[in-house]
Nucleic acid binder design. Structure first.
Lengths: 169, 169
DNA sequence: AAAAACTTTCATAAAATTTTGAAAGTTCAA
DNA sequence: TTGAACTTTCAAAATTTTATGAAAGTTTTT
């Protein structure tokens, strides 16, 4: 396989992976492009490489910057903005975990907390009890996941590796 | 909050959570319904509860059965099929992990393996070297994630809890 | 202060995904 | 072996998501 093909294939696959995990396909493709680009890229270069519009490129690059997966940088003597991808995959993983924890897991836990306060009436005592029990159960698991992800999200890679090695023993 | 409202809210939130993680919203809603239903449900009861068509209900219930999140059962004297949800959230987590590992992570690792064989030409030696290095790096992380998920996917919940407690010490 | 260089926004268009429901398929009882 | 009861399929319709690109906004230079 040639380098150009390989790059194209990587971008497409990474985009596909992101897409099945609920991340905008183009955003994941842009991320892939940054992962394998040594140099800084401008919005125009991203537009060109992926054949996408300025608006699309701009919006998705901005989200990547928000997630901490891409950094904004300036070149001296140049007016426009350039971007550089975070290459450390452990950091990438941590930042994706944090973004999604904040956006999705935490709100779900909040809802589960509310749902524990459902009212009982004379007629539905048993039903309410069963519902509360299951919600509590789900909430506890969600909180375990949340804590686990928080730990991973702020741990050194070495610590994780060491812990994992012990784990599988 | 009343029980009916609470159930509705749970179904909507669980559907939303699934949806942002790339799981069909209706499938996640059906799953939510099963999580909080004590009794067996028929396809028609699911259709009724969520106001969805027969085809939609059928397809999504079948996928849930494939994933091991819902079981098919029969009532004696009844011709039609009934379904029961897996209530053990640890098992649910494990089965979701396994399904997605198989469908998405494993294929990505396969692609990364292929990409390591990109050819070098006289002109692009350095570039190819950099590309291979980064792909190798990504692949190693993907494999670490894969192994971690495999471990979690087949571990007892108690083992995980114990390990996690040690982890956060 | 005007214009040039660049970035952001957002209404509309395009594309992708999901849903519907009727027809086809299957199973089983009579 | 017929037909009733039920399940599955899938083309077309509906909905949701994503992308476009021109206009508006911002910053810098002249």
């Amino acid at each position: 396989m040639k380098l150009t093909e390989a790059k194209e294939k990587f971008i497409q696959s990474w985009g596909g992976l992101g897409s099945t995990w609920g991340i905008n396909r183009t955003m994941a493709q842009i991320h892939a492009l940054f992962l394998i680009s040594e140099d800084l890229l401008s919005t125009e270069e991203v537009m060109e490489a992926l054949k996408i519009s300025r608006g699309n490129a701009n919006m998705n690059i901005r989200t990547l910057v928000d997630w901490g997966l891409v950094y904004k940088e300036y070149k001296s003597g140049e007016r426009k903005e350039f971007f550089r991808g975070e290459k450390d995959i452990w950091k990438v993983t941590q930042r994706v975990i944090k973004a999604r924890q904040r956006q999705e897991l935490d709100p779900m836990i909040e809802v589960l907390t509310q749902l524990q306060h459902v009212e009982e009436t004379a007629k539905n005592k048993t039903e309410v009890a069963a519902f509360k029990k299951q919600i509590k159960n789900i909430k506890e698991h969600a909180e375990l996941a949340d804590k686990t992800l928080t730990k991973i999200g702020s741990a050194e890679q070495n610590w994780f590796l060491k812990t994992f090695m012990k784990m599988i023993k």
